[in-house]
Simulated scan of single mutants.
Amino acid sequence: MLPPLNSSARPVRPAALIRLLLGILLPLIVVGVLGEDVLEQQRFAFESPLMLWLHAHSTPALDHLAVVLAYVGGYQVIAPISAVLLLLFWWRSHQAARFFAVAVLGAALLNGVMKFAFHRPRPELWPRLMQEHGASFPSGHSMYSAAFVTALILLVPHLSSRPSRFRWPATILGLLFTLLVGWSRVDLGVHYPTDVLAGWLTGVAWVFGTYGLLRPASLRVAERQHEPASRKGTASQEA
């Protein structure tokens, strides 16, 4: 006779499964493929033509915008903003503050480790408008901005009493900001497109992984409130 199934085991929530597959596993697979080619010093055929095309169609106004975004998306601006938000989260929820600190600061530290490991030289396709030092892969600006925005979107319930009203606008604005920061790194000639892509994907994967481990209890309750009624009933019976 087969033993009875464990009825106390909770089914995996669709949102958690989506975060695992699209937020962690898929980005890490893509970064792994790119990283392997970078370590083997292989060239991506599309990168130089794409960068030269962007440079040929750039304008002084776009170059100025890229410089501004490089400053806004760098540590000079995001780091103080992160510190202020960390204090705000700490005042409202210590768990939220710990998650935000590990998500954002951890992404910055991870970027430094990855740059040291891959040690990819920066592109030298035209005289740069601003000088950058250090390795090229992955883009620190792209990785940090992606981690910063993703963490904030996940913590919207701790910033507003009506999270459903602000989550989509925050997501759209955050995505636009991250895309523009990544574009600025290519427009300025300080990063290859694959540096930017790897930065985005690694930042998102790091934050979602951190979220799975350090998700504040209040957000777990909010997620359960959006579960189907049948699951709520099962959960209440198990309790």
Rank of each mutant, 00 (worst) to 15 (best):
G23E: 10
P123I: 02
F208L: 08
R162T: 14
L69H: 04
F166N: 03
L65Q: 11
V12K: 05
H57L: 06
H133A: 08
P193F: 09
Q225K: 12
E132P: 07
S136F: 05
A151C: 03
H64S: 04
R13A: 15
T59L: 09
G212S: 01
G182S: 08
G32L: 01
L5V: 07
F116L: 15
P169A: 01
L129T: 06
H158V: 06
E132R: 02
F116G: 02
L34F: 14
L69N: 03
A61Y: 07
R19K: 07
R224A: 03
A61T: 12
S230A: 11
G233F: 11
L54C: 04
I24Q: 10
D37A: 15
L152F: 10
Q42A: 15
P27G: 04
F99H: 09
P49T: 00
R120A: 01
H64D: 03
R10P: 00
L5R: 14
A151I: 06
E36G: 08
R122M: 09
W183R: 11
S164E: 13
L188F: 12
L50E: 03
R185K: 08
T194K: 05
F100V: 00
A146S: 15
A170E: 13
M130R: 11
P14H: 10
L20I: 06
S48I: 09
V196P: 10
H64E: 12
L180S: 15
Y211S: 09
P193T: 03
L22C: 13
A205T: 04
P193K: 06
L152I: 13
V196W: 05
L86N: 09
Q237D: 12
G74I: 00
T150Q: 01
P121R: 03
A16E: 08
A117Y: 13
V38C: 05
A96R: 08
G112P: 09
Y71H: 14
G106S: 11
G199D: 04
V31M: 08
R224S: 01
H191R: 13
A9K: 11
E238D: 12
S93C: 10
S82M: 07
V149C: 07
A235N: 14
R215S: 04
G233H: 07
Q41D: 13
S164I: 05
N6K: 13
A146C: 01
W200F: 15
M130I: 15
T202Q: 06
S230M: 06
F89N: 11
L21W: 02
V221H: 13
F99V: 08
P127W: 11
D187E: 15
D63E: 15
T59G: 09
G212M: 12
P228I: 02
W183A: 15
H119P: 11
V181G: 14
N6P: 14
H57T: 07
T234I: 06
H141M: 12
R13P: 00
H141N: 09
E238I: 13
V204H: 01
P27A: 06
V190P: 13
A147N: 05
V67R: 15
T194M: 07
H141F: 07
N6T: 06
F208M: 09
Y211E: 00
R185N: 14
P127R: 05
V149N: 04
S145E: 01
G189Q: 07
P228H: 08
A198H: 02
S58F: 09
I153G: 13
L28H: 05
P127E: 10
L21N: 00
A61G: 01
P138K: 09
L213Y: 01
R122F: 06
L69I: 10
G35V: 12
R215C: 04
L88D: 00
